[in-house]
Design a binder for these strands. Structure first.
Lengths: 375, 375
DNA sequence: TTGAAAGCGCTAACAG
DNA sequence: CTGTTAGCGCTTTCAA
């Protein structure tokens, strides 16, 4: 790879401005304690020479890097067929940029990668890490903890160490599930089934819990295990589960699927069996994965989570600590299910937005039910 | 953000092993010219202390960073609802990892970001850049060129500078389009329409060219402008275009859509009009965007491009230069370790995989027609 | 306020 | 082969 041209140094700027390196350094770093005219001269020299500080030299002495690692551990393909990932990154990127931090992306796909990532983090090349670890048995979180780098997790981690639960940001999976199922109840459905996600992920477990919450409190119902089918968040899994479900409960009149992909598979089986949606069976998904959720037949009623905001919040939490949340957090219990039928995707820039809950070291973001045709 | 604990230095390792810093440095950097037993002792000390080189200190003297910037300039949402992006990154990440390089992600969404990125690149923080710039009028490529950083583009850039066309990797859009249209011809269709992508992107222009190539050479046909509708790569655009098309050519019997999203929109309009696919109208897409292409109704016949490989190749090109494409490059000196491309089906060991063309400074990757139900 | 000087941790000549 | 010695470009005491 060709060599980059050598760039002007502090020294060069100092010479040009007729001052010492120390003075230039002060000006470059905010200019406190430097007299106006001098500072002005320095700034001119900087501009003329096109000076940009050498980050390596700076880090060497300050021991800071103004860089954050984003670790995405996903041996499965799912993350890559999912806008989730991209939206998350976008949110993170925005926040980091606002704080003049760089984003170092670490993608892992197996055991070897884990040690590689752990070594990198332990190497002190970054000031902190944002980690997405979806599975309960993932060894990565432990390794990262040992690396001693400040870390915020995306999604509630399924483990805890002696320190307790680590900092994390998550969607209100349980609450969102409740909203979805209550919506179905409100539609007059009583034999409401749930196709779960991969239960080794906290998101799937939490959504199942939400479903159970509502079913347990519902007059006619109570918990009927035959209405719950375990699946894995994929369309194929959704198909399988739907067939299974139809086999044991032909009378089912509503399905809450753990995510949109699953709902899609269910939809297909329903269509193939000649069952009408939502007339015969109402279907609700989770994620509001676009364009899928809009383009399905019929368009999917689903629970939206604000992925980008989640990313932004993770970065903010890492950069500024828990205090970043002050002024926006809401005492728990105060969250009411929000319903919107207007597919309006905007979330206010800046701020942490409405009704983020902060239980202990975690931040929980609210969800919104998006009503389309399927339920 | 909390401070990271201080790590052991070269000095510490040297003391522990009873050698000089220089010797430790040699061992850490490959160990050439160090006697076996000594090297062994050093390695033990390294392990015991958990020593990891300080990259900042190293960069300061070597002027290399072992880091590459990935710039994704996409003011539109499209990239984010598209696995494209993620797959690209995964390919890049794999290759960079194999070369012990870090991936610094730069996402941009507007004018301000451009100058920010340009400054960063000009600042010499990375050894090179991989740039995705989709639009003809994008000012970013020019800025990046001025920054003087070695760069490889993703997708054929729509501009050229005094140096000629910059290095790039692209899918064989034109060839893929030809394959798609020939397939339709082979099916006996003669009134084959094309819904274009956003024509300010080279990919859309190239696909249109491929369509024209085949139509021009087809016996019955010749070019009929009424069969071409301009659109924008979105499902909504696809719907609009399909309606327009049906309005002026009710006799159309096949549609080649510029991408799968567009095809999806077309499919919906066709269904709504009671036209059967593929009996009445055959439809072919482009991208093989999963799970969409598989889950549509009917499943989509489409042109697949190997996105991940594209990313991998971009990184390889940047890291090793054009020689990366001539089979196994011979490392000069005894040092350069042979880079093992991970066991993977799409690209041969060290090579560029099957049938990659290299016209001038560009590399063109082949496509595959995936036959499903829609054509 | 400003400048002089001492390193941050590492690599790269150059000696030995 | 191995050790000694200069810095890389910057921040940061410490004096002036």
């Amino acid at each position: 790879m060709p060599e980059a041209v050598s760039r002007p140094t502090l020294e060069a700027v100092a010479t040009r401005a007729g001052v010492s390196r120390a003075t230039v350094s002060r000006v470059v770093n905010g200019g406190y304690g430097v007299r106006q005219p001098l500072a002005e001269r320095v700034r001119r020299a900087v501009a003329e020479l096109g000076y940009v500080p050498n980050q390596a030299a700076r880090s060497l002495v300050t021991k800071r890097h103004d860089a954050v690692a984003v670790v995405i551990a996903e041996p499965e393909v799912r993350v890559f067929t999912d806008p989730f990932f991209a939206l998350q990154l976008r949110g993170i990127s925005k926040e980091l940029t606002a704080h003049d931090n760089q984003l170092v992306l670490l993608l892992t796909e197996g055991r070897d990668d884990h040690t590689r990532v752990a070594r990198y983090l332990a190497g002190g090349h970054v000031d902190g890490a944002l980690v997405f670890s979806l599975h309960l048995d993932d060894p990565l979180p432990g390794l990262i903890h040992d690396a001693g780098v400040p870390t915020v997790f995306g999604g509630r981690p399924g483990w805890r160490d002696r320190t307790g639960t680590p900092m994390y940001v998550d969607t209100d999976n349980r609450g969102g599930a409740r909203t979805a199922v209550r919506h179905l109840v409100g539609l007059g459905r009583s034999r409401i089934a749930h196709i779960t996600g991969a239960l080794d992920q906290t998101s799937a477990a939490d959504r199942l819990d939400g479903y159970r919450d509502v079913m347990a409190e519902t007059a006619g119902g109570g918990l009927d295990p035959s209405l719950v089918v375990e699946s894995d968040f994929t369309p194929a899994g959704g198909e399988r589960a739907m067939r299974e479900l139809l086999g044991r409960r032909p009378d089912v009149d509503a399905v809450f699927a753990a995510n949109d992909l699953t709902a899609l598979g269910a939809l297909r089986v329903l269509r193939e069996r000649g069952l009408r949606v939502p007339e015969d069976v109402a279907v609700v998904g989770f994620d509001d994965m676009l364009p899928l959720a809009e383009q399905s037949d019929p368009p999917l009623t689903t629970v939206r989570q604000d992925i980008e905001r989640m990313g932004r919040l993770m970065a903010r939490l890492l950069l500024r600590g828990p205090s970043a949340l002050h002024g926006t957090s809401v005492p728990h219990g105060a969250s009411a299910p929000e319903v919107s039928s207007a597919p309006d995707r905007s979330s206010g820039p800046g701020g942490t937005g409405p009704a983020a809950r902060t239980p202990g070291p975690g931040v929980i973001l609210p969800t919104t039910l998006i009503r389309r045709a399927s339920a």
